[in-house]
Amino acid sequence: MTTAASTPASRAFGLLVCLALGAVAVGLSALVRPWAPALSPLLLAILAGMAWRNLAAVPERLSPGIAFAAKPVLRTGIVLLGLQLALGDVLALGWGVIGLVVAAVGITFAATLALGRALRLPWDLIALVASGFSICGAAAVAAADSVVRARREMAATAIGLVVLFGTLMIPLMPLATGAFGLSEEAAGLWIGASTHEVAQVVAAGGLVGSAALSVAVTVKLARVVMLAPVMASLAAAQRRRDARSSALPDDGSAASASRPPLVPWFVLGFVAAMLLRSTGLLPAGVLDAAAAVQQLLLATAMAALGLGVHLRSIVQVGPRPLVLGAASTAVAVAVGGAGAWLLGPGLSLG
């Protein structure tokens, strides 16, 4: 797909197409959720975009709007994601669980980076998989994509891995918690600390029980809070990579201005939205509307990413991403399981 001249009209047309795909994905996901909870709007949207891109021609005049949906719209959706998080809910878990959340995200992220380098995978794919598997699935992949400027086929591959391994965890995690004889609260802690997508956490926790579901979702949202520091760290790493590749000092000059900022603006917006939610000033109706808009914006961005993906490029990556996804999942499960064993017996949301 070549790039057309960008005008307000061309941007609007391409954006509306992506918005329509996103809206259909949101509606279809709600329709099939009782039977297929893993089919999130983000997954359905990127699949719709990929199907169009690989089965039929995408008009060139859509390019400016697709590019707009894949960046500014995406970043706005990440900002609104902060309104789903209240610091009070996270702090109510207790410092032990908060420490587990930090350890689970940090260890899984670092281990995935190391494993990806050992497998000689591309840097952009490694960064996306590490973000998605350690934090919050497709939303974290999208945020990392905005920081490292990954190729679209790498974003699609990372999201596909999140869906594959996260879906496998929906039946396997309840079986594992039962095999170890964990209480519902401890089971929810393990599920929330290990499972990739929020929708997958809801599905797995719901299979165990209501207490497990409550703990799992709260722990998962605590992991989402880690999006801000991890993305800031990833931006700093990307700046160092850019500086090395261009052999230019990181001096703030015009030559280095194209590097990602140390703290991307959407990360600051995410933190500000989270703090605003934590004040308790926003009524429930506003929060519900913001959640719906956030879901639609991210689905729109996923459709845009899908419209730029060549399946041939994904196939050429080979089986090594599957190895990375399996290993990253194993690390997350091991860290979460150790924490559930140690902290589960005394866990309380009070």
Rank of each mutant, 00 (worst) to 15 (best):
A5S: 14
R11A: 13
L19Y: 11
A25I: 08
S29W: 03
P34S: 10
P34Q: 10
A36E: 04
L44R: 09
G49S: 11
A51G: 06
W52G: 08
N54T: 04
A56I: 00
S63C: 09
I66H: 11
L83Q: 03
Q84C: 01
A86L: 00
A86W: 00
D89R: 13
L91C: 00
G94N: 09
G94D: 09
W95T: 04
I98H: 03
A103R: 00
G106C: 08
I107V: 15
I107R: 07
F109L: 13
A111K: 03
L113R: 15
D124G: 15
L128F: 11
A144L: 09
V147F: 07
R151Q: 15
R152Y: 02
R152M: 02
A155Y: 01
T157I: 06
A158I: 12
I159F: 10
F165Y: 15
G166V: 13
M169R: 02
G178A: 14
A179Y: 07
F180E: 00
E185T: 11
A186E: 05
G188F: 10
G188P: 06
W190T: 06
I191D: 13
H196W: 09
V198W: 03
A199W: 06
V202A: 15
G205W: 13
A216M: 10
V219Q: 00
S233Q: 09
A235W: 08
A243W: 06
A243H: 08
L248S: 12
S253M: 04
A254K: 13
S256I: 06
F266L: 10
G269D: 02
A273Q: 09
D288Y: 00
A289R: 05
A292K: 13
Q294I: 03
L297Q: 04
L298S: 10
A304K: 08
L307E: 02
V315E: 12
R320E: 06
L322I: 14
V323M: 12
A327N: 01
T329L: 14
A338R: 01
A338L: 14
A340R: 05
L342T: 12
L343I: 11
P345Q: 05
